[in-house]
Design a binder for these strands. Sequence first.
RNA 1: GCGCGAUUAGCUCAGCGGUAGAGCGCCUGCCUUACAAGCAGGAUGUCGCUGGUUCGAACCCGGCAUCGCGCACCA
Length: 928
Amino acid sequence: MTEALPKSYDPAGTESRWQQAWESSGAFHPDPAAQGEPFSVVIPPPNVTGSLHMGHAFNTALIDTIVRFQRLRGKNVLCLPGTDHASIAVQTILEKQLKAEGRGKEDLGREAFLEKAWAWKAESGGTIVGQLRRLGYSVDWQRERFTLDSGCSVAVIEAFNRLHEQGLIYRGEYLVNWCPASGSAVSDLEVEMQEVDGHLWHFRYPLSSGAGCLEVATTRPETLLGDTAVAVNPKDPRYAALVGQTLTLPLVGRQIPIVADDHVDADFGTGCVKVTPAHDPNDFAIGQRHNLPLITVMAKDGSMNEAAGRFAGLDRFEARQAVVAAMEAEGCLARVEEYRHSVPFSDRGKVPVEPLLSTQWFVRTEPLAARCREALAAAAGSDPRFVPQRWSKVYRDWLTDIRDWCISRQLWWGHRIPAWFVVSETGGVITDNTPYVVARDESEARAKAEAQFVGGVHAHPVVLEQDPDALDTWFSSGLWPFSTLGWPDEQAADLARWYPTSVLVTGFDIIFFWVARMTMLAGAFTGQMPFKDVYIHGLVRDEQNRKMSKSAGNGIDPLLLIERYGADALRFALVREVAGAGQDIRLDYDRKSDTSATVEAARNFANKLWNATRFALMNLGGETPASLGEPDPAALQLADRWILSRLARVNRETAERYDSYGLGEAAKGLYEFAWNEVCDWTIELLKRRLQVPVNLEGAARKAALADQRTARQVLAKLLGELLVMLHPLLPHLSEELWHGLTGEPPETFLALQPWPAVNVAALDDDLEASFAELIEAIRVVRNLRAVAGLKPNQSAPVRFVTGRGELAAVLQEASADITALTRAESLVVLDPAAAEAAPGQRALASVSGELQVLLPIEGLVDLDALRGRLEKDIAKADREIKGLAGRLANPNFAGKAPPEVVAECQANLAEAEAQAELARRRLADLGA
RNA sequence: GCGCGAUUAGCUCAGCGGUAGAGCGCCUGCCUUACAAGCAGGAUGUCGCUGGUUCGAACCCGGCAUCGCGCACCA
């Protein structure tokens, strides 16, 4: 390849071109029968209503880095994408639209409403999918799934039926969290507590005996209408005598008992609690213990019902005011306190939920959770394994003392519950007591119902009506790792090949909602945990450390950053920011200009790689890594052996990091290796050898050409491997550059190449250490030149003085490199004795370790600056001497520290002393 | 109330027993034919506070403080 690349990297065209090429070629569409150890990931399905936010981009960057790495490792990788149907969210949006037209969903009817929902899904559901594509996600789009598609629906129906057969799903009337805004029950997890400034109203309830009043307090006066008792602590002496007596409930006139219950805290308030079993979970429990009646005073829309008497029809918050006013009018209001307390809010509806007695479907979770707890505690190792490990405790704690899961929703958009009411038994209506059958479909339901209800007294034909309610979206999401692979068809090829999945990658905010639901359901249906590892990552926070969210309006649109810097840059920035411990990441961002220094730095890195490859293309003489072949070990120069050792080491480290979810470390390590060691040192060192001077002839020319070839081989190998290693992090750029470098045809992909083998023979610790010294020596010369005020293009003689033979040898061997990188006019390496013998001319000097660097020139430089430099060196050495000598003087140190540490300390001291001495002499040389 | 995490250079974060690092920003000099989205050089820290363990602590242990998160929740 000799085609010149443009001077800087332009991501837009490159990225879309490779995305299309990958997808249309089916590069990421694996065959279950193909070779390779299976590796599978199902992506957390984003909400179909949504658009891409930074959390998706982050999650995607992490997953794609992992799966691209595993693909390079030769695994048979399936990464399966999809979306979820977001029952409540979608329904809320549609109902809002209808409301704007002055209609409700009932006006449309179920069928028409669902048609509308599907149409809307078709229209907006593609948005996020298209955005995921723009990130370069290497998923198998041919296997894309949707939680409401036919396969997932079959799985949901099957799952519901099996759980029901096993007695793990039941229907019953319980207190549930009712969201009046969406008109549906919600599960405990969909409720979040919020601190609210409210009031604590103190009311007096008169004793029926007429012997006074008891004072109770409440934050929800409207529930008073449903009170069926007042409770006190059984050990409370103040009220012991009153237990068993009755009170007259004000406004209502009902006689309600005084009961003794441990739940009541005698020290809080008056120690008396009004009990409303139909409207409060704690009161419900008290009611159960004392057999109290349940009086529901509120309707499902949040208004008061007939049981609320004269308050019927009022909204719950109006009723609150009205009840307070009425109580005050009756003289029963003792006092009102300002009171800050927690109120349960509906996650979706954003209104306070109402605990309401209602008949719903529930999953009996304890047996499912027990299986998960056992897997987690298994002797063979935690299953699944959480990374970072601390999250397993959060997961386990939640699975302990778990409450049953309310799975029915009074919604239409979703999986309709596969239960049919035998309405012929109840005169055509569905009541809480209508018998029902659970079945896979209506004909099976009919058969079941006929077997149960026809014959004998039931001479009439059965009439069935399917339960109108839908299931919690999480019920179908909970089947995602296996429903997407073909379950309940247990013979499905994908299921056999890729289940259980290898790793689930998701945010910690979703452990209960999703991770635990998946493990519970997978345990029940597949007998296995659905993934081996769970990699939990943090959240992306904004520049002020706030969680990014749509409602807070502080989201950063990933697409703006992609447009400005490229998808690779965004991905790299996100992954590079990941701390090893799964911390939240903070993304800097300037809202005025849509810029981010972090992403810009990643873009600059991409550009650096672009230019390094560009340099290679200009210097490989039209050859490729393949045509050049491996360099001959005997022909390698010091710098070659060094970078090849580094390459082998970085290869090994990087693979380990990718493999163990150390993605941030992998990214940082490669960034530093590529920029510092490859670009700043190796390429600079190779330049000299890649250019063969035209005036060379004969043997010299031959030698130079041979060395040029070695240099080309090293450069080609280095870049070729580097691009593979970077590919999981910068997929588009690396694909583009790899094609440029190798000249491979467009239909061959870097994404499908094998990870290069570690060249173990190249590893050389001693060499790496020596080379570090060489680099340091060059730095010292450059620094000295800078301090002395030499112009960058001005050359000067360089003299090294060292007593250490190995160091001298390295300096000798690399003299041509040093000359090139320091603009040395001439270069000599002397031992101290020889240096003493040399004429004592005035010299610029710097001392570093066991090395003195001298620039013996006069008259051109700023001697004061140089004296300052030497004085600084002396002060530094003296500080070091003081510290080290102090340590060594401590008898405890010499006695207790490991000998090698003591020896090292002594060596350092000797070196520092020598350094100080040398620096003082050079200072003296300069004169006053 | 119970639990978890964070606290290191101006900013974002690594380091997790042998006396502190990176990127960005900052200062100086360079358009040196890969790259000014760059190159070379430079400055910058009582590692939250406080006890303890240790020859030695940013790192281990105890307490405290601040910030953040999760779970539970008293009417």
